[in-house]
Design a binder for these strands. Structure first.
Length: 449
RNA sequence: GGCUCCAUCGUCUAACGGCUAGGACGCUGCCCUUUCAAGGCGGAAAUAGGGGUUCGAUUCCCCUUGGAGCUACCA
């Protein structure tokens, strides 16, 4: 078309028949990135024409999940624009009018042989359109049998009719949706022709696949965003990972902020083949984003998970330091909450005494060393309880006492943490402070009697 | 079955028709080291097969094979 470029308006049209799905998130993300890259609008339209399965709590879950991820929309059921309403259940009049027009012009008819549903008349023909990602796609109407159902009755339209009417009414310029809709597109084109409506551009995204390379579905497991939220994945990590599933910037960059994604996003960077959703790789991203958090941000993010692990955060500085010792060692906030449990002031070291004994040592020797170490630590002033000073002091002491590192540091670490694997003893002791450190060593000694 | 889409390491992917096919995650060897991580330095790992076109195909065309999606009065 000559003249000014049409305003970019895109949408996602989730049906509120389940909690927010990662596939929906990725479609939402790609639409949002496309809109913002082109200075356009991103719209959320709730497709609740399936009255039996649609539920308001699912709509809420979808909207809250997208907001949690930092995906922004300009118009939606909770954000009025000039193209509302944004729930199909509230747009029945539009569909009724369209259906009536089709019936009046004899472009559609009541099918008396099948429950009196309304069908669109379709002359046998080839339907073609240009997909922005795949190029020209040609379908013959014979392949699905021609006339197709567009409504159960005047007030009960089927998805095909509703999308076409709404996309036109809301001036959608680009329909960016899952590959599973490719075969529906021909029907939508036919409907647009019958209703004299414009045809938007279409771009069909590759599917998200499970480990068996089948379409990611609820049955396949962890597809609900809520689950990832509960497990302690960071929104930025999920967003970054999802953006790279089926799209890439044509270079080696892996980590993107939301703004960088907006700047770099384009349709040619979208892949044609389906992409397997890998929890392992998502964990890698989450680990990376976890490491980027400042101590206050880390505490803020981790607090719900600490509470979940039975930890009351009464001392901000203490818990910030405690979290830092595990920050690089875990991949989710949930793991983090469990990992720092031993820092609780009222921790009762519930571990077997044998765990205190280093592989080349024995019970008696371990006891003697811990006793001596406690006496030595007793002489250190409180300000010495920093990672660096403790390291220097204890290492020096080991040398003068002619003691082995493993023989000493392993039991110390276990005495303080009760764990086979944990942060180093200096890090932990520095957080605990002198008093708690000595107390835990004393507690451990009792296990060696 | 019919229709449609797709095809580079295990996975996500890069490579104007032109270097030893690059990166990331994972796996793995060594170093570091009190454990586990982290970190440093290495390694294994891919163009599905067959025909063309071309001086030259990962790249373009065809066939085969394989996979997926759709095939609802669900969206």
């Amino acid at each position: 078309m000559p003249g000014s470029e049409k305003q970019v308006r895109v949408r996602i049209a989730p049906s509120p028949t389940g909690n927010l799905h990662v596939g929906t998130v990725r479609a939402a993300l790609f639409n949002e990135l496309f809109a913002r890259h082109h200075g356009g609008s991103f719209i959320i339209r709730i497709e609740d024409t399936d009255k039996a399965r649609s539920r308001p709590e699912f709509e809420r879950n979808i909207l809250e999940g997208l907001a949690w991820l930092g995906i922004e929309w300009q118009e939606g059921p909770d954000k009025d624009g000039s193209f509302g309403p944004y729930r199909q259940s509230e747009r029945i009049e539009h569909y009724r009018a369209a259906l009536q027009a089709l019936l009046d012009q004899d472009k559609a008819y009541y099918d008396e042989t099948a429950n009196n549903v309304i069908r669109l008349r379709v002359a046998p023909q080839e339907v073609r359109f240009t997909d922005l990602i795949r190029g020209e796609i040609i379908t013959h109407t014979d392949s699905w049998g021609g006339d197709f159902v567009i409504a159960r009755d005047l007030k009960d339209p089927v998805f095909h009719l509703a999308v076409v009417v709404d996309d036109a009414a809301q001036q959608i310029s680009h329909v960016i949706r899952g590959e599973d809709h490719i075969s529906n597109t021909a029907r939508h084109l036919l409907l647009q022709q019958a209703l004299n409506l414009p045809t938007p551009h279409y771009a069909h995204l590759p599917l998200l696949l499970d480990e068996h390379r089948r379409k990611l579905s609820k049955r396949a497991g962890e597809v609900s965003v809520l689950t990832y939220q509960q497990h302690g994945y960071l929104p930025d990590a999920l967003l970054n990972y999802l953006a790279l599933l089926g799209w890439n910037p044509k270079n080696d960059q892996e980590y993107f902020t939301h703004e960088e994604l907006i700047r770099n996003f384009n349709l040619p960077g979208i892949q044609k083949g389906g992409a397997v959703f890998s929890l392992v790789k998502l964990q890698g991203f989450n680990k990376y984003y976890l490491r980027q958090l400042s101590p206050p941000a880390l505490l803020a993010a981790a607090e719900p998970y600490l509470r979940q692990a039975g930890i009351a955060v009464d001392n901000t500085a203490y818990w910030q330091s405690a979290l830092q010792t595990e920050q690089e060692r875990v991949s989710t906030l949930q793991e983090l909450g469990q990992a720092v449990a031993f820092f609780a002031p009222d921790w009762q070291g519930d571990f077997p005494g044998t765990l205190l004994i280093w592989k080349k040592s024995d019970r008696q020797q371990t006891r003697q060393i811990l006793e001596k170490l406690a006496q030595f630590l007793e002489t250190l002033p409180e300000p010495t309880f920093t990672v660096q000073s403790l390291h220097d002091e204890i290492m020096n002491w080991l040398e003068t006492e002619q003691l082995g590192r493993g023989d000493t540091l392993w039991p110390l670490r276990v005495a303080l943490t009760g764990r086979e694997h944990s942060p180093g003893p200096f890090e932990v002791a520095a957080v605990l402070g002198k008093q708690a450190t000595l107390q835990r060593i004393a507690q451990a000694l009792e296990k060696l009697l």
